[in-house]
């Protein structure tokens, strides 16, 4: 009989596994791109502002941000279900992680498109 769970990201382990891998690729790409930008561009307010002014980069950034949220949720959910045995504190920690994830995504949207 399958184990039931309602606090993980998807309802299935395969889904969580896939999300974890796909988001890892997005985050790796984003990190490499930013590293390349920092290394090969003369970084000042103008170049940084110009980068974030482009729609494709805002979309890329939002994708990385959402990936970070999903990736962190799958990972932290796993850590809490391993190490926090009592239901109430575990649920509380998961709720805090979920809230932080949501706040970061919304805040990120505001930063990217707010101005």
């Amino acid at each position: 009989m399958a184990v039931s769970s309602i606090t993980n990201l998807g309802r299935s382990g395969a889904y969580d596994w896939m999300v974890q891998r796909v988001t890892a690729y997005v985050l790796a790409l984003y990190t490499l791109f930013l590293l390349g930008f920092l290394l090969f561009t003369d970084v000042d307010y103008a170049s940084w502002g110009a980068l974030f002014h482009q729609t494709w980069f805002r979309i890329f950034s939002l994708m990385a941000l959402i990936s970070m949220g999903a990736h962190a949720w799958v990972g932290l959910w796993t850590v809490t279900t391993d190490y926090v045995k009592a239901t109430a504190p575990r649920f509380l920690i998961q709720a805090l992680c979920g809230t932080a994830m949501f706040v970061y995504v919304v805040w990120g949207v505001q930063i990217l498109w707010g101005h």
Binding site: A2, V3, N8, S12, G13, A14, T81
Partner: peptide
């Protein structure tokens, strides 16, 4: 397979 697809049985 349906019985193994949850986040614990195999994916832990």
């Amino acid at each position: 397979l349906a019985n193994l697809d949850d986040p614990f049985s195999v994916f832990r």
